[in-house]
Amino acid sequence: MKHPPLAALKLSLLLVLAALLLAGGGILWSRGQAQDAGLALQQQRSALNGARQQLDRSRQQQQLIATHLADYQALTARGFIGAEDRLAWIEAAQLANRDAGLYSLDYRLTPRAASLPALARGLPLGQTSMSLTLPLLVETDLMRFLNALKARAPGIYRVQGCRLSHPGDASFEPVNQPRLQAECELLWFTVAVESRTSQ
Rank of each mutant, 00 (worst) to 15 (best):
Q94D: 09
L69S: 15
P124W: 01
S129L: 09
A88L: 11
I81P: 05
A66K: 04
L123D: 07
R59H: 10
T133W: 04
E91I: 13
R112H: 07
S131G: 15
A120C: 08
R57M: 14
Q60N: 15
L134S: 00
L134E: 00
T140K: 07
R121S: 13
A92W: 03
Q73V: 08
T128F: 03
G126W: 05
F80Q: 04
L102Q: 03
F145K: 01
A70K: 10
L116R: 06
A113W: 09
N97R: 08
Q127M: 03
T133P: 00
R121I: 05
E139A: 15
A120M: 03
L116G: 05
T140M: 08
T76Y: 13
Q73T: 11
M143C: 04
I81F: 10
L123R: 12
N97M: 07
L142A: 06
I65G: 08
T140Y: 03
D85Q: 14
L123M: 08
G126D: 03
E84A: 15
M130A: 10
A114H: 01
L142V: 01
A114C: 00
L149S: 02
L137P: 01
D71K: 14
R98V: 12
L116C: 02
R86S: 14
S131N: 09
T76E: 14
A148F: 02
L123G: 04
G101F: 02
L119T: 04
P117G: 01
V138H: 12
A113Q: 15
Q62L: 12
R144S: 02
A83F: 12
L136F: 06
A93M: 06
A100V: 03
V138W: 00
E84G: 08
T76D: 11
D141L: 02
G126V: 09
V138R: 06
I81G: 14
T133Q: 11
L142H: 01
Q94G: 03
R121C: 06
A93Q: 06
D71T: 11
A66T: 13
A113N: 10
P117M: 00
L105F: 00
E84F: 05
L125S: 02
R59E: 14
E84P: 13
R108Q: 14
P124M: 00
L119D: 11
W89Y: 13
Q63N: 14
L119G: 04
L87N: 11
L109D: 05
S129Y: 08
D141G: 01
G82A: 12
R86D: 12
L69R: 13
A93R: 03
V138C: 02
A88G: 11
L123S: 02
R108N: 09
Y107S: 04
L116K: 11
R108E: 09
L87P: 05
L102G: 00
L137R: 06
L134M: 04
Q61G: 12
L134H: 01
A77H: 13
A96Q: 01
A83K: 11
A83T: 09
S58N: 15
V138S: 08
L75H: 09
H68C: 15
Q62R: 12
Q63K: 05
G79N: 07
L69T: 12
Q94L: 09
A74V: 05
G126Y: 05
L87V: 11
Y107D: 08
L136M: 02
S58D: 12
Q61Y: 13
A114N: 13
P111S: 14
A77Y: 08
A120S: 11
Q61W: 15
R57T: 11
